[in-house]
Nucleic acid binder design. Structure first.
Length: 700
DNA sequence: AAGGAGGGTTTTTTT
DNA sequence: AACCCTCCTT
């Protein structure tokens, strides 16, 4: 297959320049030398012609087994573009990615590949969850749910789980809300309904969880709310019970493509299988060695058994790693080979040997952070390294704190990625709760969160009385007020406070309905009216803190502005959907520019699919990596997943990699000696270095 | 009803 | 150390 000029276009967004390169062949070669991996992959020259044809144009089931750093995202992006060039209508292609960010990037790259033509239609590139929301928004009423439903995020789920546990009223609650949610999620992903869950419980914990599950689900339904798992389950249920709905969805797409297939769970598999049942035009891409979401129900068996699930499937292997230096890759290979139950493959390094991977032990987590950050400061200031080429990887969300304060002390710009911290802040959760109640009056969980925030004279006793009555009468909390007042269960004063609150909500709801495009102003007016600012003043004594928290409120209104400006048809539900599914959506342009030259901090999980010139993998200790919970689970699969996690972390590094651990680490205020991770030994044998506290500067 | 003090619990990873 | 819950005082 000869390359047309079009195909030579860069898919990183700078289409014009690359076209010029294509015309000036010698310049192109100069360009290739500078960045051989990138340009080769852009042309897909690393594939042999047969692979290239298959990958780009083959119909029917196709499995692309692509190791880390083999350019799989590029390959499937090219595939979408190629299908479109081959005459498939763009909107008849569905491509599922793991995160919304990845989806956005893929769409941009596809459009860059296709050139800025006069194309109106776009391929549908989204996550499973976003796709399901789209379907449900159209069809959910068939299942007896209200047309407007609220999506519960992690925080809402926790509140709902806590309530369910309270309702079940077991004296010794041996089950935390988090544990309950984990059990429920596992049940949901394996198709166990609340009714079924009672049947074969293996222990007391599960019996308890089973009745809490029933309460939890009933409560969600009464609130007109769905959790993340429900989005998938309800869509599957729709497809099962309403053939015409499934038919409509099947008709919509000629080609379906799934990225990160190793991380699909049971419900997702079911969904995909149903969608492609008729034409079997399914292309999946993945790497079993990078399966790190087992705890969320992901099953590697889906990728291992793809050929059994889809008869006549073709398999293409991509085993040339263009990302890492040979030394880094060798280390990664050595580690992952310790796992059983995997497609045996060895990635070949395309790149040079590179500098040595460094291993360092430090006295404690403080010294670890100081040294790593000192080195980073040195690299940025003295060596001219770009901050955004540096990434610090962690196992848990608690680890970055100490690095964060070091970075701030050294005045290095940094950005903590992926952590949902923005929407986790109390103020944001409060405001979101207001928005949810405005959007969906039945959402009791959110209503209870804000009914007396800021304090407006509606106390706990009043709320509890009304709740009981509302359950008895089968009505809403508000509708229980008159009779409660009549029977003197609540004070007139409280009743008046509630009536005032109800009027407030109704008023703003009406405003939103009348002028949905005015969303930011209405919300900002709402914040004025309820005087949330003084709530913050009360909450925090420290003035700096008050400033910061007030700023958060402004950011919230900003994010509403950004949304309203870019949405085709702005609406409150649209905003909520984005906020909950996309997470911290679209930093403002200003932020994005600032972030461009910042050191990145993130968990290994959120680093999936990314790459960095320099990676610091910190906290290589037993109990952290592998995590304590996995060690305690004491199953080979749990440890194997931690090993894959380490593998993912290592293969994020392009040029330089350093692994560090602390000889002692503070936990819950107490210092404890720690043991170097078993994975270090697996990679190094007995060459494990002993204490090596001074590692400032660089040694390349 | 509100606010503060004190005590207990907590942290794996995320759409 | 940060958060939530409960209890106590006003």
């Amino acid at each position: 297959m000869a390359f047309s000029e079009q195909r030579l276009r860069d898919d990183s967004g700078t289409g014009r320049n690359c076209l010029a390169f294509a015309l000036l062949t010698d310049r192109w070669i100069a360009f290739s030398r500078a960045r051989p991996d990138q340009s080769l992959m852009d042309r897909l020259a690393h594939l042999n012609p047969a692979q290239r044809d298959a990958v780009l144009t083959l119909s029917g089931p196709l499995l692309i087994l692509a190791g880390a750093g083999t350019g799989k995202t590029r390959v499937i992006t090219h595939r979408i573009a190629e299908l479109i060039r081959g005459g498939i209508e763009p909107d008849r292609i569905l491509s599922v990615t793991f995160t919304n960010k990845a989806a956005k990037e893929m769409l941009e790259r596809t459009q860059a590949l296709l050139g800025s033509g006069r194309r109106q239609k776009k391929p549908l590139i989204s996550t499973f969850h976003s796709y399901c929301v789209r379907v449900l928004r159209q069809e959910i009423e068939a299942l007896g749910y209200p047309k407007t439903f609220t999506i519960y995020d992690r925080g809402d789920q926790e509140s709902a789980a806590r309530k369910a546990l309270r309702d079940v009223k077991i004296a010794e609650t041996s089950l935390s809300p988090g544990d309950l949610l984990a059990v429920i999620s596992r049940w949901k992903m394996t198709g166990i309904t609340p009714q079924l869950s009672g049947r074969n419980c293996e222990n007391d914990k599960e019996v308890l969880a089973s009745s809490a599950y029933r309460k939890y689900q009933n409560n969600l339904r009464a609130c007109g709310a769905v959790d993340f798992d429900d989005l998938l389950l309800l869509t599957n249920q729709l497809f099962d019970e309403f053939p015409e709905v499934l038919d409509r969805q099947q008709q919509r797409f000629d080609h379906v493509q799934i990225d990160e297939y190793q991380d699909t769970n049971g419900a997702q598999f079911e969904l995909v299988e149903a969608l492609v049942r008729k034409h079997q035009n399914l292309c999946v891409v993945g790497d079993d060695d990078q399966s790190i979401y087992g705890w969320r129900g992901a099953e590697v068996s889906h990728i291992l058994n793809f050929q059994q699930h889809f008869k006549g499937a073709k398999v293409i292997r991509l085993e040339d790693n263009y990302r890492c230096t040979a030394r880094i890759l060798e280390l990664a290979n050595k580690l992952v080979k310790k796992n059983r139950d995997r497609h045996d493959k060895t990635l070949r390094a395309y790149r040079e040997l590179g500098s040595s991977v460094r291993f360092r032990q430090f006295e404690d987590e403080q010294v670890e952070a100081e040294n790593v950050i000192r080195e980073i400061a040195f690299l940025i200031e003295k060596k001219g390294v770009a901050p955004q080429d540096i990434c610090i990887l962690f196992r848990t969300n608690e680890q970055p704190r100490i690095f964060e304060s070091e970075l701030r002390r050294q005045k290095i710009r940094y950005v903590i990625m992926g952590s949902q911290s923005f929407f986790d802040k109390r103020e944001i959760r409060d405001i979101l709760a207001y928005l949810k109640v405005l959007d969906n009056p039945r959402d009791e969980t959110s209503l209870l969160r804000i009914i007396n925030v800021p304090a407006r004279g509606i106390g706990d006793t009043t709320v509890e009385t009304l709740l009981k009555r509302a359950v008895r009468m089968g009505c809403s909390l508000f509708d229980a007020v008159p009779s409660a007042l009549a029977e003197k269960e609540i004070t007139p004063r409280a009743a008046e406070a509630i009536a005032r609150f109800r009027r407030l909500l109704d008023d703003f709801r009406a405003q939103l309905q009348a002028r949905p495009g005015d969303l930011p102003n209405i919300v900002s007016q709402l914040l004025e009216t309820i005087d949330y600012a003084s709530e913050i003043q009360k909450q925090y004594a420290n003035e700096d803190m008050q400033m910061i928290r007030t700023e958060i409120m402004d950011q919230m209104v900003d994010s509403l502005r950004t949304y309203t400006a870019q949405a085709e048809e702005p609406s409150l539900s649209g905003y909520l959907e984005e906020a909950l599914l996309v997470g911290r959506e679209e930093d403002s342009d200003k932020d994005q520019k600032l972030n461009q030259d910042a050191v990145r901090l993130m968990t290994i999980h959120s680093a999936k699919g990314l790459e960095f010139k320099r990676v610091y993998l910190v906290g290589m200790e037993e109990g952290l990596l592998p995590h304590k919970r996995s060690v305690e689970a004491d199953t080979a699969t749990a440890i194997a997943e931690e090993r894959r996690l380490t593998y993912v972390a290592i293969t994020r590094a392009q040029d330089h990699l350093m692994l560090t651990w602390a000889a002692a680490r503070k936990k819950w205020g107490k210092k404890k000696l720690s043991i170097p991770s078993r994975f270090l030994r697996e990679m190094l044998g007995d060459e494990l270095p002993e204490a090596n506290p001074s590692a400032g500067g660089s040694d390349h």
